[in-house]
């Protein structure tokens, strides 16, 4: 190295850690593989074209949006996550054209219109589901029971939280079915077990805080118990597990600090019980998270960490 060679002048720190957006996103995808595999196992191979359609549409939409906004497109994996999550929250026999419309909405309206990754206020996959619910109400009324063969069409059945849900199972058998995922529901929401495996992966890599699922699910359990409902059933049925592990923990749309995240989780838990008990819909996880997404900027404004040196020193004698 001689003086003729120009030295690079970068600003400190000159050392960077191993964290990268791409790495985070691919870990989330890895964690999502478990409930996704469950979706295929319980509801058949039809889930695969749904996934392919959603992921492809999500990526293409992002590419076009970036091109229109004259920004560079990065294959950071976030569009893949949105595509997968969108399928996991939809009924397992959703027509592909609805998957196309929904996943385009997720990316174009819920994400890119707000400025792209990091700027969106609402969780894109849930916003997509909400959009489909109000636009094509019929699409979200047909649910099927878990299939016995991967190529089976599926027999219409009610979801555990839906009207007209009856079961011949004993309590213990019903809990077991709910825990393993052998019930009707959205493609990826039924198996608590597979979702929890994904959650453990996210926790192990430090991508989510345990406080979010614990306070979210805990609030639902406590409130439903106080209202005389079966807390275990309320936790395992519907999309609570999937929402608590993969959606309420979304970096972009949830508060920054751990205290803020707890407020978010408790608020979402309260909303779930309110909607399930008194709302016109059987399920409230999607709207509970979307509503709390809207409160996130407010929570971040008021819930901040305590800066160093802002309390009177408690331990004066230590210095003496």
């Amino acid at each position: 190295m001689d003086n003729a060679k120009r030295l690079v002048l970068s600003s400190a720190p000159h050392l960077r850690g191993g964290a990268s957006i791409k790495r985070d996103m691919y870990i989330v995808i890895l964690a999502l593989l478990f409930p996704t595999a469950g979706a295929v196992y319980f509801f058949g191979l039809y889930v695969l074209p749904m996934l392919a359609t959603a992921i492809l549409c999500a990526i293409l939409t992002e590419y076009v949006a970036k091109w229109m906004r004259r920004q560079s497109f990065h294959m950071d994996g976030s569009a893949i996550i949105t595509g997968i999550l969108f399928v996991l929250v939809m009924p397992p026999r959703t027509p592909l054209w609805i998957v196309v419309v929904g996943s385009i909405f997720c990316i174009a309206i819920a994400k890119e219109a707000f400025g792209g990754l990091g700027h969106n206020i609402f969780n894109p996959a849930l916003a997509g589901r909400a959009f489909i619910t109000v636009s094509f109400a019929g699409a979200l009324t047909r649910w099927i029971a878990p299939v016995h063969s991967l190529l089976a069409d599926g027999i219409t059945a009610a979801t555990p939280l839906g009207e007209g849900f009856t079961t011949t199972l004993s309590d213990v058998e019903l809990y077991k079915a709910l825990f393993f995922g052998n019930v009707a529901g959205s493609a990826g929401e039924t198996s608590a077990l597979l979702i929890l495996i994904g959650g453990v992966i996210l926790l192990a890599f430090g991508l989510i805080k345990w406080q979010v699922p614990v306070f979210y699910i805990g609030t639902v359990a406590l409130l439903s118990f106080l209202l005389g409902q079966d807390p275990l059933f309320q936790i395992l049925a519907g999309g609570l597990m999937l929402g608590a592990v993969f959606m309420a923990t979304d970096y972009v749309t949830s508060p920054l600090t751990t205290r803020g995240k707890i407020i978010f989780a408790v608020g979402a838990g309260v909303l779930v019980v309110l909607i399930r008990t008194w709302g016109s819909m059987p399920e409230g996880v999607c709207y509970s998270i979307l509503l709390m997404n809207a409160f996130t900027p407010l929570i971040d404004r008021y819930v901040r960490p305590k800066p160093y040196g802002y309390v009177k020193s408690r331990n004066k004698e230590a210095a003496s």
Partner: peptide, 29 residues
């Protein structure tokens, strides 16, 4: 005196992961 290879990386949008808040020794955001 540290001799090294430069490691200049492309800057992306913040994804609000909160790592910077957790690592800040001064309790800042």
């Amino acid at each position: 005196v540290l001799v090294k290879r430069s490691d200049i990386r492309e800057e992306y949008s913040c994804i609000r992961c909160g790592r910077c808040i957790e690592s800040c020794p001064m309790g800042l955001m």
